[in-house]
Amino acid sequence: MTSTQSKFFWYELMTSDMDAAEAFYKAVVGWQTEPFPASDFKYVIFKPSDAPKSGVAGLMALPEEAAASGMRPAWLGYIHATDVDAATESLRKAGGTVHREPSDIPEVGRFSVVADPQGAMFMLMTPNGEGGEPAPPMTPGHIGWHELFAGEWSAAFDFYAGQYGWTKGEPMDMGPMGIYQIFNIDGEMAGGIMTKTADMPHPFWLFYFIVSDIDDAAKRVTDNGGKVLMGPMEVPGGAWVVQCMDPQGAMFALVGFRN
């Protein structure tokens, strides 16, 4: 088993139309789906085609109270915490916001809904049991990168480093867009942090789903009613990325090669 402590290990789409979103991501990413039987409300598991017994993400309806407060459909990530109660309190003391106090999900674990001091939302969870071995790099259907568009990147990095032990990788100078700071978890590159542009309404996390061919996948986005907002753009290592919006308005990204 591989420890997932302080890593993103689960991803969840909260959306305004579950059936449409399920069909969209099945078509675009190639995920299989199945309902989660232990839930007392509708919850769908997304599974890669190479590992049909192991899910990588979930799908649920955007809660009415969240929609009423102005939250739009969005992807959120879960960071593994050994003690979610202690981690939630630590985040609060460090200037973060707790949107939902820790509570239990039967047969799954204990979680909280939080935001960093600049407002980017995520979840903390102490799951029941550990996950399996991670998939090899660039395996289609898995999550390949985590990107934070922060209010100010340096302070954001300091927060995550202080709370979760993330370390700095190589910074990249993006010219007018500023510094793109790679962050490592357990010595491995896991994502990047940069200061958001003025047209972005608030800080947020963006997750990159791996596909086998980036051009084919970008076409599937638009063919199925989504939008390509940026790309395809080549990134270090020879892969290509696109940033997208699904038909309900949730932002996501894809990473893959050109075949």
Rank of each mutant, 00 (worst) to 15 (best):
Ala57Val: 00
Arg92Pro: 04
Lys93Val: 15
Pro134Gly: 12
Trp75Leu: 08
Phe183Cys: 07
Gln163Cys: 04
His146Arg: 02
Leu148Phe: 13
Leu148His: 11
Leu76Arg: 13
Pro140Leu: 01
Ile182Pro: 01
Asp85Gln: 11
Glu152Asn: 09
Asp85Met: 09
Gly169Thr: 01
Gly132Pro: 07
Val84His: 01
Ile143Arg: 10
Gly141Val: 00
Tyr164Thr: 04
Trp153Thr: 01
Met71Tyr: 09
Gln181Tyr: 00
Asp116Trp: 08
Ala115Cys: 14
Arg72Trp: 02
Ser103Trp: 11
Pro137Gly: 05
Lys47Arg: 15
Leu148Ser: 13
Glu64Arg: 15
Asp40Gln: 14
Thr167Asp: 04
Lys168Ala: 14
Pro171Gln: 04
Ala67Val: 08
Leu62Gln: 11
Ala81Lys: 05
Asp83Pro: 10
Glu64Thr: 14
Gly129Asp: 03
Gly165Glu: 00
Tyr43Ser: 02
Asp40Ser: 15
Lys168Asn: 01
Gly96Tyr: 08
Phe41Tyr: 12
Glu152Phe: 03
Ser112Cys: 05
Gln163Trp: 01
Gln163Gly: 05
Ser154His: 07
Arg72His: 12
Gly58Cys: 13
Pro127His: 10
Asp50Ala: 15
Glu130Tyr: 01
Ser54Trp: 01
Glu170Cys: 08
Gly141His: 00
Ala120Met: 05
Gly95Glu: 05
Val108Glu: 09
Ala150Asp: 02
His142Ser: 15
Lys47Thr: 08
Gly70Asp: 09
Leu148Asn: 11
Asp158Glu: 15
Ser69Phe: 05
Thr139Ser: 02
His80Thr: 04
Tyr78Met: 10
Pro73Thr: 06
Met174Phe: 06
Pro73His: 03
Asp50Lys: 11
Leu62Arg: 09
Ser54Phe: 03
Trp145Thr: 15
Asp173Lys: 12
Ala135Trp: 03
Lys93His: 10
Pro176Cys: 08
Met125Glu: 00
Gly119Tyr: 03
Glu89Tyr: 09
Ala38Leu: 12
Gly96Lys: 11
Pro176Arg: 09
Thr167Gly: 01
Asp158Tyr: 06
Thr167Asn: 01
Pro102Asp: 00
Met121Trp: 08
Thr126Phe: 00
Gly131Ser: 14
Pro106Gly: 11
Gln118Lys: 12
Met125Gln: 02
Phe159Met: 06
Met174Asp: 03
Ala150Thr: 06
Glu133Trp: 02
Ile105Phe: 10
Phe122Trp: 10
Gly131Ile: 06
His142Arg: 11
Asp50Glu: 11
Asp83Gln: 13
Arg92Gln: 04
Pro117Ser: 04
Thr126Arg: 05
Val108Arg: 14
Phe183His: 05
Pro127Phe: 08
Asp173Trp: 12
Val114Trp: 13
Val56Cys: 14
Ala150Leu: 04
Ala115Ile: 13
Glu147Asn: 10
Lys168Arg: 13
Gly70Arg: 09
His99Ala: 03
Ala66Leu: 09
Phe46Ala: 07
Met174Asn: 14
Ile179Gln: 15
Glu64Gln: 15
Thr88Gly: 01
Ile105Pro: 07
Gly129Pro: 04
Phe122Thr: 13
Phe122His: 13
Pro52Arg: 06
Pro73Trp: 00
Ala68Tyr: 02
Val114Pro: 14
His146Tyr: 07
Asp50Asn: 11
Lys168His: 04
Tyr180Pro: 05
Val56Ser: 10
Thr167Glu: 05
Ile79Met: 12
